[in-house]
């Protein structure tokens, strides 16, 4: 979505009623964030809405980006937020070989997730259970981590349910939403 460098558009303040709405939507979508929501978006702080090209809107708190949204699609967390609260989202892991493709903006393909280095929910190799046990459906927002790294490298929307992925083992897995080093990542909010 943000393959090219982008220039931020108009920045406006979010009404406090709308802010409450965003807050409840975030909690609904990512219930695990609940204990930290007051740190992420304190009730008293003023959120800003930055308009980005292609009808994407980005919610920021001061200079820290929090969530972005394409039209009325689900809110997606910015990677800096994910890095701060990694375990609050649905996570998948890709193998090492796929990292460089993801970081250049390619659509994530299923083999990157099903190979030995990748992790899907309810994986036998996943001893700590950090990738969850519930299968995820298409359309869910997932955070993509990578083999041997601690921080996430991408966030996107699943194109295929994880159960189907395990069976089919090919095709597109996840639409590139926001990845490390893309336009949204490079965006500076002064």
């Amino acid at each position: 979505m943000f393959k090219k460098d982008i220039t931020p558009g108009a920045k406006s303040k979010v009404k406090s009623s709308a802010q409450r709405g965003i807050r409840s939507k975030v909690l609904e979508q990512y219930p695990l964030l609940e204990p930290y929501i007051d740190d992420i978006m304190p009730k008293k702080e003023q959120l800003d809405l930055v308009k980005l090209p292609d009808r994407v809107s980005l919610y920021t708190l001061g200079a820290t980006p929090l969530f972005f949204q394409h039209m009325d699609d689900p809110l997606m967390p910015h990677l800096t937020l994910i890095h701060r609260y990694p375990s609050c989202f649905n996570r998948l892991r890709i193998d090492r070989g796929a990292i460089r493709f993801v970081l250049s903006g390619a659509t994530l393909m299923v083999p990157g997730l099903t190979s030995p280095g990748g992790r899907l929910p309810d994986d036998d190799d996943d001893e700590e259970g950090i990738y969850g046990e519930e299968e995820l459906d298409a359309g869910e927002v997932v955070v993509i981590e990578s083999e041997g790294k601690e921080t996430a490298c991408m966030v996107g929307v699943l194109k295929m349910g994880t159960e189907e992925m395990k069976k089919v083992k090919k095709g597109q897995a996840c639409e590139a939403g926001h990845y490390l080093g893309d336009g949204l990542w490079q965006l500076s909010l002064g």
């Binding site: 701060r84 790294k149 490390l180």
Partner: peptide, 17 residues
């Protein structure tokens, strides 16, 4: 949480990347 993350001063990515 929140976890402190270091970002590279050259390429802005986390140093792992």
């Amino acid at each position: 949480y929140p976890r402190q993350v270091v970002y590279c001063g050259v390429c802005t990515l986390p140093p792992e990347y």
